[in-house]
């Protein structure tokens, strides 16, 4: 998706990450992050046309847990709102589609998670095929290990790193989006999202080529990512940097990799890329996020500076 009728920019963002939040619940953790991003943009919730979040109810352990997070936003009088059981970067992609409506010109996107309270490796197994995979309770690290070994066996990669324990951190990220002139009003340095695309591969690990990422490559092509100066990659495990570098044809261009908190790390990569664009450090940035085992789902965005 690119060549938008209504150009969309990231105008503000805020993030918080800690190894294990000891006391505050998800809403309490999220509230200051949203307030900071909204404050930076000079907006209140009543100014926002569309609100969308990414999180996992499995991490909180009860259905519709994400609804409780709306307490951090203030959903009265009623707001227009949506949620994805995915990384917040996929929620950002939804917001951009919604912002193509001509009656909405701002959106708030946020993601949050507090996986330190449970066993993340086991919780993630609940996302897998309920009949042929989930009953085995495979740990996320073990599945990532299958990908790393397949990369070693392929002979295409030098020095594939060992898979460390699954990264666990608590945190939240909030991003404020605005369209065209509204974005120019809200900030002197909008980071325009000139393209964004997300693709998904089959859930069965055996039918995919685990040594590459067809979906990331295709998303990058459709987002118009060729020629980006630098990339912000969401890599839950270190070997995925090598894989994505190759799949996205990044050569030796600078890449900034991070895992980040589950469900948050991808949106945080978009926010980090936007900060670099706003600061004039790069003119065209590629931002990437993933969800699912072994890079099953990927979203790629292109961010550019200028008026």
């Amino acid at each position: 998706m690119r060549g938008f009728q209504r150009p969309v920019a990231i105008v503000a963002s805020a993030s918080f990450e800690t190894p294990a939040e000891p006391a505050r619940n998800e809403v309490e953790m999220l509230l200051p992050v949203i307030q900071k991003a909204m404050g930076e943009a000079g907006l209140t919730q009543q100014d926002v046309g569309f609100t969308v979040s990414g999180s996992s109810d499995y991490l909180q352990g009860f259905p519709f847990a994400f609804v409780g997070a709306l307490d951090a936003v203030g959903a009265w009088p009623p707001i227009r709102e949506s949620h994805l059981e995915m990384d917040g970067a996929f929620a950002l992609a939804e917001a951009i589609a919604v912002l193509q409506h001509d009656n909405i010109d701002t959106a708030l996107v946020y993601a949050f998670a507090r996986p330190s309270r449970g066993e993340l490796d086991r919780t993630l197994a609940l996302q897998l095929d309920p009949y042929t995979v989930a009953p085995l309770n495979p740990d996320a690290r073990g599945l990532a290990g299958l990908q790393a070994q397949a990369m070693r066996d392929s002979g295409r990669y030098a020095d594939v790193p060992d898979v460390p324990p699954t990264y666990v951190a608590d945190g939240a990220t909030a991003v404020v989006l605005a369209v065209g002139d509204r974005a120019r009003e809200l900030t002197a340095t909008p980071a325009w999202i000139t393209g964004i695309d997300h693709r998904i591969e089959a859930p069965a690990l055996g039918v995919r080529d685990l040594t590459t990422s067809v979906s990331a490559k295709r998303a990058a092509e459709h987002a118009g990512a060729a020629g980006a100066d630098a990339a912000w990659l969401h890599t839950p495990y270190p070997h995925q940097e090598l894989l994505l570098r190759e799949a996205l044809g990044l050569g030796d261009r600078p890449v900034h990799c991070a895992a980040g908190p589950m469900m948050v790390g991808g949106l945080e990569r978009f926010a980090a890329a936007a900060r670099a664009v706003a600061a004039g450090e790069v003119t065209k940035a590629l931002a990437h996020a993933t969800s699912g085992p072994c890079l099953q789902q990927n979203v790629v965005g292109v961010l550019e500076g200028g008026k």
Binding site: E119, D121, R122, L136, N137, P138, D139, R141, G142, L143, A144, G145, L146, Q147, A148, Q149, A150, D153, V163, G206, L210
Partner: peptide, 15 residues
């Protein structure tokens, strides 16, 4: 076997 990884610490509910 087409690829594999070693699981040192089997968790509850694993095979």
């Amino acid at each position: 076997v087409t690829t594999w990884s070693w699981n040192d610490k089997p968790a509850k509910g694993q095979p």
